[in-house]
Write a protein that binds this DNA or RNA. Structure first.
Lengths: 211, 211, 211, 211
DNA sequence: AATGAATGAGAATTCATTCAT
DNA sequence: AATGAATGAATTCTCATTCAT
């Protein structure tokens, strides 16, 4: 132990994970940040070498922090999901219960339109335990927003969580791959939100005409 | 050259493309068919060797027909798009003008849910001139269905082609990556279709409430 | 060089394995030959790159023929064991039943003293089915020589196959690692052979008969 | 330099080697002990990191004590050889002059059968001056046992030191790589000892005296 | 003295592409 | 036209060694 102070008197913000030296943590964070950008632009098949170069470290350093490429991808995933979960919490605590879900979907699609994120990575990254937890939180966060919206009457009673998540991922993928501009995002989401709101007589109509 | 006939005295059915010997054409078609299956299952990073092996030809033969892997991917794209265009034509000529668009979207999403197709490939394949043409046809075919639906009153007047295509690609990507089951597909599309139909007072409401 | 004759009229000497083009076979053999020498000198941790360079081919060619380094090591093993088995057959068919075993051990130790061979490789190479077969043949070949020697009275009745093989591998390892010179080999083996003979009149006989 | 005392005023107990602080010496010894175990189990290609982890020190500490991996291997060698030399001395001072050599060989082979030791390490480690000294002592120790055995009549007059060492290393290598069980060790050594004795009445004596 | 993060030169393996047969 | 062996650059991952803290 090199520090003359006990590590115990520093707040441990990393949940039981061995604390890193300040310089190592900086590198780790830089690597994640660069990796996020690189994989966002080129997809998960971009080379680890490129991430290393972008972060200004040697290739070995990347592999020291993330022993496989998979591990790096999963670390990115974890970070992205955590940020989403924070957004969800904020919206759930907010004062516009009817609009929270719409706001969240709108923001997520907007992010996806800018760069590859959770959406792509989720598709290519194996879901490990760490990630699985964040993912479950995400589901629950969206479910909370959906509940509030249903109670506020801004979303039809018969809309279920699964459909909402399906629409969310679909829209993100679409925005991501097709590079929707802001206006196209707005108009496309308007249609989907309209469908979520539905009409008083929507349920009745949908019984017969679809398919 | 082993053929005793000049290639010139056979009808050229391929629009300016050099005619092939019958066996060569058979090979070409087999390669495309196998490549479609292979890339559908494993994504575009599957190896060209595997395609060759599946088609029962040597690797050199694949590269003889398609000088780069890109070219092979684009040839597949072209084929897929042509088939979609045929579907569109059939629906445009059909007798249920109000439902054609819904039917087309439903079928395409269903295919995507089964395997990687146009959706993935389009994302990874550079769009060259050949493909661009088919893509333009696709746009026009969908536009025709959309027009008919608007005229039949099953789609709101203010819905534009861009949104429809955006929803289409988004839903396909979603179905593809998340592996939606049939029931989830149905419920998700019901919401989107509801949004496309809209309500009498939808236009009014949408002015203020979105975002 | 591709022959204009059908491959069918050439004898297939490779036991059901797909026949290779002549140039490919030449390369394959050159690679094995070089690999044998390289691994003999530097041990199995020598790099595949060095083998490729020595054989005058690109690294990819080595991996085309032997998909992993293990596979290359095992191919070498197989060849070495086959050669040993041929020696055994020749000695078993020879006319000096009492001396066959001694001759074989002497030759094998002599080879080991010159370079790393079966001995080292066997230690590091996983034994797969192909190799296992040759190894079993080797055991049986030595057993045959041992039987003949026992019947000829040049080896004690109570000596068993396991001890002979143990002595054989031990002596080879020793000769290999310590680089015994010819004279040291002779004197060391004389002691072991004396132990194998183990008769009251051993001293008398040992004067003349050892090689 | 942090120490306030000159290093010169502490007694130098290690033959010209710089004296170490008590904690440093403890580390050094722990590293050697762990390294011995690790290399014994996994061979000399085991990673230095693993040794460090096992010893509970950082990798830098290992390299502080042993500037290269080679140096670490040689230090282990030296320790092993020293212990063997102690055994030799004990046997040379013992009261069974005729059996000392046999006992020593038996014990060394038994150790080799249990784990990689001197045998492997000697093969892979370059012999430096330090090691060379211990090795010379080993030779002399075995020579002493051999002399006594010859005088006691339990080993033939014409057996020379080189053959004995050759047999010793060969048997150790064999036992090491082939994993001889106790019974196989006994039977194999019986043959070799028989060869070393090599007298008319050898068979008779061997019934009782071995082990 | 100890720490442990960083380095960077390999090593094995893959695969699109070329070219002699 | 077809074959399939050869190429070699690119990629992931390892590990002895260095050096700032």
């Amino acid at each position: 132990m090199t520090s003359t102070k006990s590590p115990a008197d520093r707040p441990d913000d990393s949940g039981g994970v061995k604390p890193l030296r300040a310089d190592a943590r900086r590198n780790r964070e830089r690597i994640i940040a660069v990796a996020e950008a690189v994989f966002a632009e080129k997809g998960p098949s971009a080379s680890t070498e490129e991430v290393a170069a972008g972060a200004g470290v040697a290739i070995g350093t990347v592999f020291k922090h993330f022993p496989t490429k998979q591990a790096l991808l999963q670390a990115i995933m974890k970070g992205l999901l955590e940020r989403l979960n924070e957004q969800l919490s904020a919206l759930a605590a907010g004062d516009r219960p009817g609009e929270g879900l719409f706001t969240f979907v709108t923001e997520m699609v907007d992010q996806a339109a800018r760069k590859r994120t959770v959406v792509t990575l989720l598709a290519e990254t194996g879901v490990d335990l760490q990630v699985a937890g964040s993912l479950q939180s995400l589901r629950e966060g969206v479910e909370a927003l959906l509940d509030r919206a249903r109670r506020a009457g801004t979303v039809r009673e018969d809309v279920r969580l699964d459909e909402v998540l399906a629409l969310l991922t679909g829209l993100c993928h679409g925005a991501l791959h097709a590079g929707w501009d802001v206006d196209l995002q707005r108009r496309t989401l308007a249609i989907v939100f309209e469908g979520l709101r539905g009409q008083p007589d929507a349920a009745a109509r949908s019984r017969g005409s679809i398919r």
